[in-house]
C-alpha cells in the first residue's frame, strides 16, 4: 500500500493544496500528517480545517502544542536571539488568529500515532520539540526508534528530509549494583530500523521554496521523497498582507525557513 506522509505545513495553505494534489496524482491510499499545522504562515485556520475535513491522522507538532499550552521552550527552539524574537512574533500573531475550534482540535492531537510497525511523531518519541537530526549519534537514534516500539519511525520538525537506516545494532546494557562484584550484562541485537524525515510542506529549508513530503510503499518499503513546486508568491503576498514580518516572505521564497533552527545533534531537548 502506498502511503503519503507530510509534516510542518505552518499555515501555508497554497503549499498544502499543491501537496494534496500531488498525493492524489501519486495514488497514495492513505495520508498521515506529522503536525506543525500552524505557526509563521498566514493561514493557520484554513490549514487545520483542510486537514480535519480530509480526516487525516495527525500528530501534534511543537507549534500546535505551543498554541495550546503557551510558550515553554527549551534552548533548541531558539538557537539565537533573533530567532527567538521572530518566533515570538509569529506565535503571538498565530495565537490571536486561531479559532476556538481549531485550538480545540490542536489540543486533542496525540503525541504519537502508531499503525502496525510504523510510528508517526513530529520531533521524536521523546518530545515534539526534539530534533532527530541526521547527524545524531546512532545509539541515541536507535534508542528513539526502539522506544516507539516500531520498525519505522516517521518524523518531521527539522524541515530537511532524510532517510536513515540503523542496521546490525547491538546494544549492551551493564547494570552496576552496590555490594556485587559481578555486573550483570545483557546484550541483544536489534533488527533493522529506519527513520524517515519527511521534510516540510510549508516551510522548507533545502534552499528552494518547493514543498516536500514522502511517499512510502509498505510492501516494497520503497521511500520516494516528493518535491512539489507551488505558487509560493501567493503565500509571500499573504504574509505581507497579514502584517507578519516581511523577512518571513523573503526567507520562504529562498527555501531558508522563516527562522533558523537548532543544529546541534548532541542536544537533548529539555522541554
Amino acid at each position: 500500500m502506498k502511503i503519503a506522509v507530510m509534516s510542518c505545513i505552518h499555515g501555508n495553505y497554497a503549499a498544502l493544496d499543491a501537496v494534496l494534489l500531488d498525493i492524489d496524482r501519486q495514488k497514495a491510499e492513505k495520508i498521515y500528517c506529522l503536525g506543525d499545522l500552524v505557526g509563521y504562515g498566514p493561514y493557520p485556520n484554513a490549514v487545520v480545517e483542510q486537514i480535519r475535513s480530509l480526516d487525516i491522522p495527525t500528530v501534534q507538532g511543537c507549534w500546535d502544542e505551543d498554541i495550546v499550552e503557551g510558550l515553554n521552550a527549551c534552548d533548541c527552539s531558539y538557537p539565537s536571539l533573533l530567532a527567538e524574537k521572530r518566533g515570538k512574533i509569529a506565535h503571538e500573531w498565530t495565537n490571536k488568529q486561531v479559532n476556538p475550534e481549531v485550538r480545540e482540535y490542536l489540543a486533542q492531537l496525540p503525541h504519537t500515532y502508531k499503525e502496525d510497525n510504523l510510528c508517526f511523531v513530529h520531533g521524536s518519541p521523546n518530545s515534539n520539540h526534539e530534533y532527530l537530526l541526521p547527524e545524531m549519534d546512532a545509539f541515541t537514534a536507535l534508542e528513539r526508534v526502539l522506544s516507539s516500539d516500531a520498525d519505522l519511525l516517521f518524523c518531521g520538525h527539522t524541515h530537511v528530509p532524510y532517510v536513515r537506516t540503523l542496521d546490525s545494532g547491538q546494544l549492551q546494557v551493564k547494570v552496576h549494583q552496590p555490594n556485587q562484584n559481578k555486573q550483570p550484562t545483557v546484550s541483544f541485537n536489534t533488527p533493522l530500523k529506519r527513520i524517515i524525515n519527511v521534510g516540510s510542506v510549508g516551510e522548507p529549508r533545502h534552499g528552494r521554496p518547493n514543498a516536500t513530503y514522502v511517499i512510502y510503499d509498505t510492501e516494497t518499503q520503497a521511500v520516494n521523497l516528493q518535491e512539489v513546486e507551488y505558487d509560493y508568491q501567493t503565500t509571500c503576498a499573504a504574509i505581507l498582507d497579514a502584517g507578519l514580518p516581511p523577512i518571513f516572505a523573503w526567507r520562504l521564497a529562498r527555501g531558508l525557513e522563516f527562522a533558523e533552527k537548532a543544529d546541534d545533534p548532541t542536544h537533548v531537548c529539555e522541554r
Binding site: P79, S80, L82, A83, R251, E260
Partner: peptide
C-alpha cells in the same frame, strides 16, 4: 549574539 548576527549578515548580503 553571534548566531543572530550570522543570520542578519546572510540576509543582508543576500
Amino acid at each position: 549574539d553571534f548566531d543572530s548576527l550570522a543570520t542578519f549578515w546572510l540576509e543582508l548580503t543576500q
